[in-house]
Amino acid sequence: MMNKRTKLQSFMLYALVIALVVFCIFPFLQILSTSLKHPIDWGNPSLIPKILHLDAYKELLGLMPPKDVDIPASIQRLLDNPALSEAKKQALITKFTSGGDVFSFGRYMLNTFVISLVTGVCATFLASLAAYAIARLRFPGQSVMANGVLFVYMVGGVLLMVPLYQMSVSVGLASSVAGTLFSLFLIYLIQTLPVAMYMLGNYFRTIPFSLEEAAMMDGCSRVEAFWRIIMPLSKPMLFTVFIYCFVIAWNEYLFASVFLKQYQDFHTLPLALQTLFTSKNAIWDRIMAASMLTLLPVIICFMLANRHLSGGLTEGGVKG
């Protein structure tokens, strides 16, 4: 314990830590701030909005009565221009109040949630079986397999994108929505499994083998020992791995953009956000509110994972 730290040292340490934290969370604060600002406030560099303006959120979450779809201020200014002909003004107004092109945030969120959940559950399940085999069993080719899976990480996604899409076209998966989603799911699995296996494998190795031996003496087969001892003991790590896989799938843009391009209804949030940026709905508060809502589950996940990780479950089982 360094309890002999001087005041100056403490001060420097805290200053550094705070600087680092601010640096990390500043973008998030910026997003949050902009999403809450009223259009009149956008030019203001202050992080604190003059008026709290929740319309962007309401709109994204479908809480606004459809009538209230506003003409954005920029357009309004345009409309106020006396040089513009009445017909053009009408066209602009209908275009912006039609609501037919409203960004269906809920739908995208559901898409993303479903594919992330399925990926998270399946990857965690498969990774735990694989990690157990690699951590505990002895079989030919074990180390090749253990290290081979990490190879996926040496090849960038951009390189694999086209070949993978071609493959899914060749086997006929890309021709249907279900097939496309399935290929995407497979890709996410492959992308998340190596790290998931690595995390779980290392965790399994910290569980004393004698616990399994004890279970076997108590009448469990090896498989039962895995389910009744190893899995319950690994809950914190399983949860963390699940969160990791979930978040990877939640944020994934590259493959989704290639595979789902033609299926607008099945777009995931990162893809939809990209579309939003370039659409006529590209309005700062709305973009930032959508970004914020996309971030939110990730932040919640990490807070949960953090809390879960602090308690060591395997403590107390064996002596020394």
């Binding site: 004698s210 031996e213 004890a214 279970a215 003496m217 107390g316 089982g317 064996v318 002596k319 020394g320």
Partner: peptide, 10 residues
């Protein structure tokens, strides 16, 4: 069997 390190289920 009783193990030297007890091997209790934690």
């Amino acid at each position: 069997m009783v193990f030297q390190n007890y091997a209790l289920y934690p």
